[in-house]
Amino acid sequence: MIELTDVSKVYPGGVTALDHVSLRIPAGEIHGIVGRSGAGKSTLIRCLTGLDKATSGTVRIHGTDIGAATGSQLKKARRSIGMVFQHVNLLDSRTAAQNIAHPLEISGVPRQRRRERVAELLQLVGLTDRADNHPAQLSGGQKQRVGIARALAAEPQVLLCDEPTSALDAATTRQILGLIRQLREKLGITVIIITHEMSVVREICDAVSLLEDGRVARSGNLLEVISDSSSSLSRELISLPPTTHLAPGEQLIDVLLTPGGEVTHIGELVNLLQSQGLPAEVAAGSIETIQDHQVGRLHLKPQDPYSAQRTVETLTSAGVQAELLTAEDIAAEEAAQHAEDPAEVTS
């Protein structure tokens, strides 16, 4: 279990990078941390690893107070954390196998045992035939697999991933995320993934925390967070393509389909509306499968203000979150998202 209690970090010069952050991440969970560039994500990771000290508050990983640990204690604590980096950071002078063996050398594991463990890990990440290749001879995805094997070498209880897929293409990203999920299942490790890609969170995380200006703006189980249609994080996780050409005064109905309600599938929604004699013209829609549940967000285009009102009432009484939006609401929302875009790309 990872526990941050009231953690603040003020850099010399007065920048408050973390502002009273409290988080509890139970063992075995895959926890995503998202936020714009400058929100404090890297600082959070640095405090978790002890590369940086929190100004106040405590960081505990499986009972060890990272902030208070020094010297050999800190080194020992670090060995219980495996770290995966965006730029992998393998040593170019070592082969894949030697890179994976490196943490074992540092903890003084005997040569024979080291060799067995490396073989095991290479198999775990599916790179047995690449053992003697140098990083320069591996693809981006293969390098990250070696990076993950290296992070796991010393049998850590926690895997910290800092933008692990941001330098990879979509297909490779899926493979790497699949690997991480599989590792959690096999080894029961706790995983923290820092990312700016919502698709990563949707695909793999059990829970997610949104950092904003050094504060935890939202934190919780992924389905819960998504099901709260009022949160901006929900809108980002299940995002819709921009709606074009909405005349002033025209309206849209924003619908969030979540498991738990009476209506959990698009088909049921359409049936429900048709049984009431209401049209169901979908202007935009996005459906994702999250933790084996279907979650969707739709923009329905009503024919007139009266049917709009009735549609919202019908859906609400069936336990579906539905809200009437005007052209102005949508323009404002899109403007807000665009303002965030440039920052997202550079993080």
Partner: peptide, 29 residues
């Protein structure tokens, strides 16, 4: 030598001497 490599090996619980010899000097060789 990329600083990320230094941090990665420090994260393994390595001493400064180890990082100097095995990362800085070896990668800078």
């Amino acid at each position: 030598v990329a600083w990320g490599k230094v941090e990665a090996v420090r994260m393994m619980g390595a001493s400064d001497l180890h990082v100097t010899v095995n990362v800085l000097v070896r990668e800078g060789l």
